[in-house]
């Protein structure tokens, strides 16, 4: 269990670093997928199989595919990679990296402070997830449902095509 966790954690850290440092955006996205998958493995190891499956299905399987889909259509060649190399100078990433480092140190300090041993792993079955979603957290579910509804209505509005009344021949003459 522990070994599996450390392997998955190492892979996820390594791939996340690779996501940041790759100049080719497609390779960066591939590493991001690997990172998501390794996080899913960690979820599975620590008793949340449902969460792990959703991580793979939704993040790695749907959202990343859509992102790759759009990147694919942008037709980014070696030229953009060169641009990226030019833009990504040390001066650009020094400050954010420094801030992140401070946060990391803080986090490490907080974790070190908390000496209480982690409680045993309790696997959460899909059924329990459903129960709690539609029990105590029903409000959150309803709120996200409303948000999604708004999204769908907006997408429909944007995607709707105006019905053509005039033939295209008359269109150019009318204006």
């Amino acid at each position: 269990m522990n070994i599996a966790f450390y392997i998955a954690a190492a892979i996820s850290i390594f791939s996340t670093v690779m996501v940041i440092t790759r100049f080719n955006i497609m390779h960066a996205l591939l590493y991001l997928i690997v990172s998501l998958l390794s996080v899913a493995v960690i979820f599975y190891l620590y008793g949340a199989p449902f969460m792990a499956a959703l991580e793979v299905i939704i993040y790695a399987g749907a959202i990343m595919v859509l992102i790759i889909f759009f990147v694919m259509m942008l037709n980014l060649g070696p030229e953009t990679t060169r641009n990226e190399k030019q833009w990504l100078k040390p001066g650009m990433w020094m400050l954010p990296a420094l801030l992140c480092l401070i946060l990391l140190i803080e986090l490490a300090y907080l974790i070190a402070q908390n000496k209480a041993p982690a409680t045993g792993i309790t696997p959460v079955a899909p059924k329990e997830v459903g129960r709690s979603l539609f029990g105590p957290y029903i409000l959150a579910v309803e709120l996200s449902a409303m948000l999604l509804m708004a999204g769908i209505v907006g997408a429909y509005h944007l995607g709707r095509q105006k019905k053509k009344i005039l033939h295209r021949f008359f269109e150019s003459n009318a204006s």
């Binding site: 199989p49 499956a53 793979v56 299905i57 790695a60 749907a62 595919v65 899909p126």
Partner: peptide, 14 residues
């Protein structure tokens, strides 16, 4: 697996 069906969906989405 007790999430067998979800695993199948995850793999097919991969």
């Amino acid at each position: 697996l007790n999430i067998g069906l979800l695993f199948f969906l995850a793999m097919s989405s991969m």
